[in-house]
Design a protein around this nucleic acid. Structure first.
Lengths: 209, 209
DNA sequence: TAGATTGTTAATCGATTAACAATC
DNA sequence: TAGATTGTTAATCGATTAACAATC
């Protein structure tokens, strides 16, 4: 079970999790794939297919128990434990991410922030002191870090990634507008903000300039 | 031409644009789909299919002229004109986006920032004064705004979206962890940061807890 | 039991890859 | 001209949707 799940399915899981959380908050006890379909926007068929990749969580004639399903999807997503994270690059975006409290709520615990700018090194963000990037590798070796958020400039990102790989990072969340070259077993999620804007302008370009 | 292009293709266009820019900066004059394939990671066949949705930009026996292709893709993406943007919610993330200089370089011009917090209203971010959100609707009517970046909390996002829709916004870039309900002809791009983290934890969950 | 809804197989749809004739 | 590489059609692959028997 849970081998060779397609990326399309995996990318839908957080959305299921979010909508089930909302149902739970509204005290909804049970939901059918048809009802869920209407609020989440996937077809009922797709919902049943998706869930059955991981097990038979429903019951014929009844549907799904909201609380059980919420917990199951939480487990599938790995929300049963904490993940240690660091931020590299404490510019505007790095600082914003450092202050995001909700990541903590999901078990993503920020334990380090690094920057190379002497004006930023030493300041405290959300209770964590910004450390000089020269100490990053040592820090990564001393602590078992799961995820690194790369918030550096485009030009610095690959160099940072190389150091992280050497220090056995498990996953990278990359906000720099560049595709990082890393070993295959390291998961990388990219947030290419400018790409999103270009997608919007693609659709807007015709409209009354 | 350029009707019914699939979303899969559109989402690859910014990446073509980025890699062609890099080639241009390296003074590469021509490139074949095979060579481009090796650096960008799509198959040569896919590259030719993608480009041919918009026209025959290549030449048999030669390949593609890098500068021409870069310009063509820029046109397709709508980078031939400026877009007026506003930010709603001047918290950490809103402020970070306001300071992103590179958006400007692509023609996305920030002209307004709104917030409801009296402690934030009045301060200046990147040369723009934060305005009370009560004045947003009027501002939107007075100015022809293309894109609104929603950086509010989850709970405030839909209300903001409703006002934007009334004020004839054309596109929304939504950073709140919620799916907005808006008219069909308004383009929405979502950046659900927590979803990305959950995707990473999905893959990490097995690894040495 | 009858009705509802799942789990799962089969059919369809769409996207990617392969192949090759056209042509620079 | 010969070689290279596109543009485009056909084949394959994968994901979504439909259908329905199983079963609560």
């Amino acid at each position: 079970m849970e081998n060779n799940i397609s990326m399309a399915v995996i990318k839908r899981l957080p959305k299921y999790h979010r909508y089930l959380r909302e149902l739970l908050d509204k005290d909804v006890k049970r939901i059918s794939s048809k009802e869920l379909s209407e609020i989440i926007g996937f077809t009922a068929s797709q919902i049943r297919q998706d869930l059955n990749n991981f097990g038979g969580f429903g019951q014929q004639g009844y549907g799904y128990n909201v609380e059980d399903l919420y917990k199951e999807i939480g487990k599938i997503l790995g929300l049963t434990r904490n993940y240690k994270t660091v931020i590299i690059g404490a510019g505007n975006l790095g600082q914003a991410l450092a202050n995001y409290a909700s990541f903590n709520r999901y078990g993503f615990e920020l334990v380090g922030i690094f920057d190379k700018n002497p004006k930023i090194v030493g300041i405290e963000i959300n209770g964590i002191e910004v450390t000089d990037i020269d100490h990053m590798k040592q820090f990564m070796s001393d602590n078992d870090i799961d995820i690194a958020y790369i918030c550096t400039s485009r030009t610095g990102a690959q160099e940072v990634a190389d150091i992280l790989v050497e220090a056995n990072i498990k996953a990278i969340w990359n906000f720099a507008p560049v595709d990082l070259k890393v070993e295959e077993d390291i998961r990388v999620e990219n947030v290419h903000l400018i790409d999103d804007l270009l997608t919007l302008s693609y659709f807007l370009k015709g409209k009354n300039e």
